[in-house]
Simulated assay, not measured.
Amino acid sequence: MLSVRGPPATRLDRHAGLFWQQEDTFYDDPTASADKATRNAVAAQGGPLYANDPDPSLPRDEWNRALAEHDAYDYLLNQTVEPMGADNARIFLESGGFPKSAPEPDTAEFRIADENLKNRFAACTWRDPIDPDKVLGNEVGTAAEEWQQEITSQAAQRNQILDANTNATKALASGAKTLGNMLGNSWVADHVARWQSYWSPGGAGSSKPTKPDAAQSDKAKKSLANAQSVTKSQLILLKQQAAAAKRAVTTTDTAEQAAYSIADTNGAPRGRGLLVAQQKAHPCATKPAQLPRARVLGADERLGVAQRR
């Protein structure tokens, strides 16, 4: 799979996030595997063609080709290092076996095959197609060159989205902690204000024979003032974090649209050249970034109630 490199700090953050991941998962093959029905279809089509050993009476060139196809079929069907990939199976089934020829350049068939290969690369199927008859070289070479051009053309936008996602995640994590601190202090301010109201003249406790002494009242005043002060500062910080998350969303949207424009200009599908950034663009940044704003307003209202008491 092609890697996406960002600024050093961003790469360090991503690597730090992998610290607790099981080591063997780093080596998982990202290639999409063929499902059972597809494997059965490959076996049904390929068995009569390639399962048996080559006929020894064949001319040398034909025998060599038959042997290469036989070995490639065995590899496709049984190799554990490279289990049957979905795209290898697609090529095999579409061609009625291993391809015997490739479409001529500058034809519609060539362009379709070329786009299919670029979709293969985009899906992290990183190996070349199984090609025992060696007919796909030009097709694969063209697709690989164009694929590199496509992802290079959107590298800046891709890294902007990944960096914005990192910034949004940090802002949301910090915002959640800030919100907890703020709500805790808001709760303290609210309950101290209730206590003061209870013991104030005309309050429910003013007919009580035993009342708080001056030290207790002073302690309550200081506790309320401190809670209100901390809550105000936390509210300012939370609004800043919500704004940072919102900026990350704006950056993501802008970068995504710019990448789409590049793709449109080059005749490429939208989003394909963004790679993993296409998934990062919305679920991890846009939706969660809207949540702190509602919580800020709720906390702000609660703080105002506490201050009015």
Rank of each mutant, 00 (worst) to 15 (best):
V4N: 11
R5C: 08
A9L: 09
A9Y: 01
T10H: 11
L12C: 08
L12G: 06
L18A: 11
L18R: 15
L18H: 10
D24F: 13
P30L: 05
A32H: 10
S33A: 09
A37S: 08
T38W: 06
T38L: 07
R39T: 00
A41Y: 03
A41V: 03
A44F: 06
G47I: 04
G47M: 04
Y50F: 08
Y50I: 04
D53C: 04
P54T: 05
P54N: 03
R60P: 00
E62C: 05
N64P: 03
N64K: 14
R65E: 14
A66K: 08
A66I: 07
L67K: 12
A68I: 07
A72H: 03
Y73V: 07
T80H: 01
P83R: 02
A86F: 13
N88L: 10
R90D: 14
I91F: 03
F92N: 05
L93E: 04
K100V: 09
K100E: 14
K100D: 13
S101D: 15
E104W: 11
E104Q: 13
T107D: 06
E109R: 00
F110G: 02
I112F: 09
L117H: 14
R120W: 00
F121S: 13
F121V: 13
C124F: 15
T125S: 13
P129L: 15
P129A: 12
D131V: 07
D133N: 15
K134C: 10
G137D: 05
N138W: 06
V140E: 12
A143Q: 04
Q148P: 01
Q149W: 08
T152D: 10
T152W: 06
S153R: 13
A164I: 06
N165I: 01
T166D: 03
T169K: 10
A171T: 03
S174E: 00
A176D: 01
K177N: 01
T178C: 02
T178N: 01
L179C: 01
N181S: 06
L183P: 02
S186E: 08
S186V: 15
W187M: 12
V188L: 10
R194P: 00
S197H: 07
W199E: 00
K208G: 07
K208L: 15
P209T: 15
T210Y: 09
T210D: 04
K211P: 09
D213W: 02
S217P: 02
D218W: 01
A220S: 01
K221S: 13
S223V: 12
L224N: 13
L224Q: 15
L224H: 13
A225H: 08
Q228D: 14
S229P: 04
V230H: 05
T231K: 01
K232T: 14
K232H: 08
S233H: 10
I236Q: 12
I236W: 09
A243K: 05
A244N: 05
K246Y: 01
T250Q: 14
D253F: 14
T254F: 05
A255T: 07
Q257P: 07
A258K: 15
A258E: 12
Y260T: 15
S261F: 11
I262P: 10
A263P: 11
A263W: 02
N266E: 11
N266L: 13
P269Y: 10
G271I: 11
L274F: 06
L275Q: 15
L275D: 14
A277R: 09
Q278K: 15
K280L: 07
P288H: 05
A289D: 04
R295F: 06
R295E: 12
A299N: 11
E301Y: 14
R302I: 11
L303F: 07
